[in-house]
Design a protein around this nucleic acid. Structure first.
Lengths: 368, 368
DNA sequence: TTGAAAGCGCTACCAA
DNA sequence: TTGGTAGCGCTTTCAA
């Protein structure tokens, strides 16, 4: 270290105090300034593309930057409020095409707006979720997105309150995505889509074809998405004058295996049905597998429908009739709200869904 | 602001200087200290779970923290070197099940090790990729993961050099995931899998069944993954004593549509083939669609194989014979290297792939 | 147009 | 066990 350059007369002896916390890089803004023979302020201005700096000075600085391989410290920058915004995407599992489309939508808008997309998975663990929320509060994230269905009810509300408690003081927004507004916490923005309507249309399509015994598979209890879908299904049945039959509602998880097991169970129970409504496309895919194995023709013997319209459903045999959910749009909307691009007040947006009729539905077989 | 507390004799008048850069929260560690009647150092110790603090003091502090709704500033903390590590996952598009499995693997290991998983998409835009690398260097990320195949050759090398130039000075690791080592830059760690061997086995399976005219669809030019797969295919043909026929190699993107278009093209050209090797499962799915539309039976008329073994391939009709790629494992490995869990030196790991025979392959039809 | 210097909020050293 | 305090690296007045 050259100490000859100090212009001051008296040399303060043990001024040198070292405590390198960031051991990686020793080249900081000050070093660049020194190298370029200007002040730190000037370097900062150059880096911030500030107008008021003479071209020659700027060049000099930039040359030093290059020469020293200097990279601004975004962390320090963030501390002064000039950092990148963070949009945190909290989801249970990073699986499935719907997740991908949704995340893509969020990421697009985030990076269009110069924000950083941070993905956090909870694996359904409430503790982990809280940890993420806390971390994001600490990082002063712009927004935390709670993505996907989560359990409803009292417990959920108090959980959200807990989150708010951490996020509010630091100004981080909390947003529900794919989940209806929490009635007790209307302040929390929510971007969701019409699960009820989608399931209604789907069921209606089935009853219009003449089906009267329609199995609902994948009724995971106490979960907003499913319960809305279930409600839509029930409403459509009622409107068609079909009596509710709880036997036809099969529980189980929202997965391929869940669908497979659900159908297997239904057949073991000798349930009588001519159509199956999977609570999601994944469920329907599993259902299809089970149906095929049992030698049932789709839609000859049994009609099958799903919900979500994930990409590959069109490539199944038969191509699946389903409800299209605009996941990417949902993501874009959510990010827009997260970044405050849509106005200030709490928002509750519900996107429309759309029935897509393909090959897996037909008239019920004529029973004699 | 109380100015009475200044112990100095002379009161400098316009000392009050305000410039609130973080407008959200005014409660900082100092505020907590004041509220609790202790020093900042003590609060810091409590928050860091340091041993040397009396229980009563700790309680007092924690009470103040709760009362004030204080949340530590992770940014400031990061500046002193105590921040969360960042693992940045750079990928072209956030699509497909293979992406999900891979990302999941990385995320798992990252959060097991208390690091933050940041997902960045480039949409195939080199400029965007560089921007991300720069940002991550600024954020002092622990590692940047370049995920997925990327073009090969001279240009690629100089691109990597450019990245290194930004990442090296700040100690951020650069890692290639799903991409073989760069011959010119052996320092850069790479975690990949055996594309050549996978394609070889697959082709071998086909030739063993008696196929001699095997179409390769999805030969996107100048891309490491494909070129390795293509090489494996060619090697297997050669080993089976089958002459190479470039006509049978169809270009096009690595997607469902790419597969569809590829087959359509091949049939328009009246190409003679009894089996199709899709460069990826997506390609094969598209190929299957086209084949079906043309009235070809699979595997009766044409055998079809893919590579990747993405979840839904088992649910196609017929279930697809493919090569299983351990994406999640790949992700876990990559993250481990990224976080330096495996030793210090540059690593080049190649994971094994495995042939999965399902229903889409059979003997070629007997031609008379 | 440029420089000096005061923070931003936290951690860690050194004394007490 | 606790407090004082000097940084970490940057931005931004204020004055020159």
């Amino acid at each position: 270290m050259s100490q000859a350059e100090a212009p001051g007369a008296e040399i303060v002896s043990q001024r040198v105090k070292r405590r390198g916390p960031a051991p990686a890089s020793r080249t900081n803004l000050r070093a660049v300034a020194q190298h370029a023979g200007v002040s730190a302020a000037t370097v900062s201005r150059v880096l911030a593309d500030s107008e008021s700096v003479r071209p020659e000075t700027r060049d000099k600085v930039l040359r030093s930057v290059a020469e020293l391989g200097y990279v601004v410290n975004g962390l320090a920058r963030a501390m002064t409020g000039r950092g990148k915004q963070i949009v945190a995407f909290l989801v249970s599992e990073m699986v499935g095409p719907s997740f991908a489309a949704l995340a893509n939508g969020v990421e697009q808008v985030a990076s269009e707006n110069d924000a950083m997309f941070v993905l956090c998975t909870t694996h359904g663990d409430a503790e982990r979720e809280l940890e993420w929320v806390t971390l994001m509060a600490q990082q002063r994230a712009a927004a935390v997105l709670l993505v996907g269905a989560s359990p409803m009810g009292e417990q959920h509300t108090s959980r959200l309150k807990r989150y708010l408690q951490e996020l509010d003081p630091v100004g981080t927004r909390l947003i529900l995505c794919g989940h209806p507004p929490s009635p007790d916490l209307p302040r929390i923005a929510s971007i969701s889509y019409d699960n009820h309507g989608g399931a209604y249309e789907l069921t209606r399509h089935l009853t219009d074809l003449g089906h009267r015994k329609i199995l609902f598979v994948g009724a995971e209890p106490n979960q907003s998405t499913v319960s809305d879908r279930l409600a839509g299904y029930q409403k459509a049945l009622a409107d068609a004058g079909i009596a509710a039959d709880d036997e036809l509602i099969i529980g189980g998880p929202f997965t391929i295996d869940g669908g497979y097991d659900g159908i297997t169970l239904a057949m073991n129970r000798n349930l009588d049905f001519t159509a199956v409504l999977g609570a999601s496309d994944a469920v329907s895919i599993g259902a299809l597998r089970a149906l095929k194995q049992a030698g049932k023709a789709v839609p000859g013997d049994v009609s099958l429908v799903g919900i979500d319209d994930v990409p590959l459903t069109a490539d199944l045999t038969p191509a699946l009739t389903t409800v299209h959910v605009p996941f990417e749009e949902l993501g874009r909307m959510t990010a827009a709200v997260a970044l405050g691009l849509t106005g200030e007040q709490a928002e509750h947006i519900e996107l429309k869904t759309e029935l897509v009729i393909r090959e897996s539905t037909g008239h019920p077989p004529v029973t004699e």
